[in-house]
Design a protein around this nucleic acid. Structure first.
Length: 337
DNA sequence: TCTCACACCTTTGAAGTGG
DNA sequence: CCACTTCAAAGGTGTGAGA
């Protein structure tokens, strides 16, 4: 599948001068195939291990480029060891996976699929830091961890025209095989991957995860993995820093913020969770949105062209009311200043 | 470790209003 | 007819108690 080009992206979104090119064999270490066995290397206690030099927000393969859109939020969660809640009826991910795709053939059809792969074979426990606590559960059928994007399949120009969001994906610990639910084991470690599947003319893959899963074995499929999106599946939060980050960034949890005037009690606010908070949120005008948007983020493609991809989407989503338009305008002005 | 009811929140769409 | 506002229902949050 050619070479994987990994460009460094600093915390401020600027390119790192230390961009590196990885060969296929190198890439297998950092960008495992969804079908490979869990990593041979041992579990990483004390939170998820970032790539050397920090996780990048950009991946490219065979001319196709993928940018993890809300990378700054992911990175902040990643530093604490991201946790995702599992519930019987399914819980949405937060942050969720949102990508900007470039380099597709405009008139060719593609299916975009998200898979969630176990990283290791251990069960973990939280003891002020994440540590392995024994052998893990046998992993469920891989096809139950595949989530096709609701717009699949669509033309390349359609995928490239807007952000590809998997906000509808829900995580569960019940094996009911319900549509839209991805079945995971609690206290296990997972990593999402985006798969771009080119569709041959006249071919119809439908929306069946099992059928799409089989397609992932095709050599023409391109897989993009971002280490900063790794997470621990849990049924209740273990690390209070993660709880606080979720409350800070997820608008649906606004009622738990200290400044919301809520009478509800919240857990003591860990001081560490405040670090870097001002970079992404403004007092009185949070740039975090229910779908995880944090405003325009500079994206660097493989050709070095700067993009401001979230902008259009924000305006579209915010055009419901004049107030929301002002919100979008302020975002644009502040980011372009 | 997991489940559930709960209060609080945002989103969404229908209905109403005014130019 | 269109743009905007208001309102209520639906559904997404973390909490905390209990199993």
């Amino acid at each position: 599948a050619g070479e994987w080009l990994v460009s460094g992206l600093g915390a401020d979104g600027a390119t790192s001068p230390s961009a590196a090119t990885m060969t296929n064999s190198d890439a297998k270490l950092a960008l495992p195939s969804p079908f490979s066995s869990p990593a041979a290397s041992g579990p990483a206690p004390g939170g998820l291990q970032p790539e050397e030099g920090g996780p990048s927000a950009v991946r490219s393969c065979g001319g196709v480029g993928v940018t993890l859109e809300n990378s700054n939020v992911w990175k902040e969660f990643h530093r604490c060891g991201t946790e995702m809640i599992l519930t019987k009826q399914g819980r949405r991910m937060f942050p969720y996976c949102r990508y900007h795709v470039t380099g597709l053939e405009p008139t060719r059809r593609y299916a975009l699929v998200l898979s969630i792969t176990p990283i290791d074979t251990y069960r973990h426990r939280w003891n002020l830091e994440w540590e392995p606590s024994g052998p893990g559960e046998p992993h469920t059928q891989a096809s139950s961890r595949v989530f096709p994007h609701q717009d699949s399949s669509a033309l390349g120009k359609v995928w490239m025209a807007s952000l590809v969001s998997f906000y509808k994906l829900k995580l569960t610990n019940h094996c009911l095989d319900q549509e839209g639910l991805v079945m995971l084991h609690s206290m296990h470690r997972y990593r999402p991957s985006l798969h771009v599947i080119p569709i041959a003319e006249g071919e119809d893959l439908g929306f069946d995860p099992k059928l799409l899963y089989l397609q992932l074995f095709s050599p023409k499929v391109m897989t993009f993995t971002f280490p900063q999106t790794e997470f621990y599946a849990v049924t209740s939060y273990q690390n209070t820093m993660i709880t606080q980050l979720k409350i800070d960034y997820n608008p649906f949890a606004k009622g738990f913020r200290e400044d919301s005037g809520s009478r509800r009690l919240t857990k003591p606010r860990p001081e560490q969770s405040q670090a870097g908070k001002e970079d992404t949120r403004s007092p009185g005008l949070s740039s975090a949105r229910p779908d995880g948007r944090e405003g325009t983020e500079q994206i660097v493609t493989v050709s070095g062209v700067l993009l401001t991809s979230a902008t259009e989407s924000i305006i579209t989503q915010s055009s419901r009311t004049a107030g929301a338009l002002v919100h979008a305008s302020v975002l644009l002005a502040s980011k372009s200043a």
